[in-house]
Design a protein around this nucleic acid. Structure first.
Lengths: 170, 170
DNA sequence: CACCGCATGTAAAACGTTACATGATTCA
DNA sequence: TGAATCATGTAACGTTTTACATGCGGTG
């Protein structure tokens, strides 16, 4: 499962609590994956059971104890295995395009405009978010991470261009 | 659920069997949605139970009867409702970017090359598929459908460009 | 005999929503 | 002072998706 591997990958960067992971999903990797809290905690529990991570409880003053998860050797092996496995087929899921594909039947040009406008707003918000994520320049790892971000940005920009073109054509 | 709505949308174009729908998912709408057979049949059964589609059995010579599904008034209403509902948040799921994000830890430039090459092949195949899909020019509906396809094509092309750039930079 | 057209069934894995709990701290 | 937010986590329940297997009557 990809979520397993992504969690392992994040924990390989540094040990984290479930809470930390949630923030990582909402920040660093938001442009290619999302996961909600309960999903993260459940997965973490399973990874622990499977011996891929272990937990160290770190007391804090004035805050709940941190349950820090870190990779075991088995976890590192699992991550490597995933990185070397073939890519799964993509299965796109784009509700926006789904709507656009069928919205013509409503015979309502304003509805089309509204749909495009809604999407444009979402795209702009996303672009702003991505542009605020830190770009670090450094070794191979850092450059690859930046590249994933760059791809996200290019994609949103391409979408905005496409929207311009489409709105002009209608 | 979006799959419900997409099936309703397709059936609104013309009545279809589950089998026809599967082909539609693998062809016409492949660039923004995928569904497997069992999922389609199960969903059709549910839609029928809910009174959103009904079935007419059409005998054929030398082949199993066709179970043609067509929209009821309720089904059309449901489709309209979906088309007018707000867009859900996107939750990206891109295993490729996930791997790229973490693959640096393997300290293996060849592995990176292989990953990019694998992706490039997939992108090229996808581009070929999309370019072979028919583009119809006509009324609003037709133009919107072409636009979804155009977006798919632009996206893959942007990805190929990004791959060029990235490979050159490494 | 393999494949097409057409479907059914079942189980497991994955994902999401909602609610709850607790002790700081910050902000109006 | 009271409300909101942060930091951390648990739990129950429901929905979605995936994977895989099976059946049957043609046709080339």
């Amino acid at each position: 499962m990809a979520l397993d591997a992504l969690i392992l990958g994040l924990l390989d960067l540094r040990p984290m609590t479930g809470y930390d992971l949630k923030k990582a999903f909402d920040g660093t990797v938001a442009h290619f994956w999302s996961a909600d809290q309960s999903q993260i905690y459940r997965t973490l529990a399973r990874l622990e059971q499977d011996g891929l991570v272990d937990v160290r409880v770190v007391p804090q003053a004035g805050k709940p104890d941190r349950r820090e998860h870190r990779l075991t050797d088995g976890g590192r092996a699992r991550l490597t295995e995933w990185l070397r496995s073939p890519l799964p087929d993509e299965k796109p899921r784009e509700p926006f395009l789904g709507k656009l594909f069928f919205v013509g039947r409503e015979e309502d040009p304003e509805l089309v405009q509204a749909l495009l406008a809604e999407r444009r707003n979402a795209a702009r918000r996303l672009l702003a978010t991505l542009e605020n994520l830190p770009v670090v320049d450094g070794d191979l790892s850092a450059r690859l991470r930046s590249a994933t971000l760059r791809k996200g940005i290019l994609e949103v920009q391409a979408e905005l261009t496409w929207l311009d073109e489409l709105e002009a054509a209608l």
